[in-house]
């Protein structure tokens, strides 16, 4: 995470906390294992492992799921990690939005599917970045081998001035959730 993103993440947390304190929709505060009434069966929780550090600002699943509700115990658990705050954060990081309830459900499905990895014992196993890890990475000589293609490179840009790519005003963060054009608004 870049320092900038980390900063944004902190800002987000503070803002989210403010919003939570302000109230709004009904929110269920859940603190780790001391779960609320919709606690999942214990064996599922066990499988997911005790090390699950989750933000404790969860909102009920239905608040953001729209109409197509799922009532599986795993989904109940996922409420812990896929909160509106996380969704909002993801939209800001990814710079794409969920579009609709289906988009959110797609993420939930993806996370649910990935949970199966927890079943694998990986104690003492080093992560594998590349199958060529046992070889030296090739570095070519630090020589200029091509260039003078400014005109050609600029051809694909829609907006440019002289030899510059033109961007709209910078250093303006994306609007807050409530002001943004997103499906998450109001959840």
């Amino acid at each position: 995470m870049t320092p900038r993103n980390r900063f944004r993440w902190r800002v987000m947390r503070v803002l989210a906390l403010c919003r939570w304190l302000r109230g709004g929709t009904v929110r269920a505060l859940r603190l780790g294992a001391a779960a609320a009434s919709s606690a999942p069966p214990s064996q599922v929780r066990q499988r997911l492992g005790p090390c699950r550090a989750v933000p404790c600002r969860a909102v009920p699943c239905h608040a953001i799921r729209g109409g197509n509700g799922l009532s599986s115990p795993v989904c109940a658990l996922l409420q812990d990690s896929v909160t509106v705050e996380v969704l909002d954060h993801l939209e800001r990081l990814a710079l794409v939005d969920f579009r609709d309830a289906e988009g959110v459900e797609r993420l939930r499905e993806a996370v649910r599917f990935a949970e199966r990895l927890r079943e694998v014992n990986t104690e003492g196993i080093e992560p594998l970045d590349s199958v060529l890890e046992d070889r030296c990475l090739y570095l070519r000589e630090d020589d200029v081998t091509e260039g003078n293609c400014t005109a050609e490179l600029l051809k694909n840009a829609r907006e440019k001035v002289e030899e510059y790519f033109v961007a709209p005003p910078g250093n303006i963060p994306l609007p807050e959730l409530e002001e943004r054009d997103t499906f998450l608004k109001g959840s």
Binding site: V82, V86, L90, A94, D97, F98, R106
Partner: peptide, 9 residues
């Protein structure tokens, strides 16, 4: 978009 968002997650 779905893959980007879950990857970011």
């Amino acid at each position: 978009r779905g893959r980007i968002l879950s990857g970011n997650y």
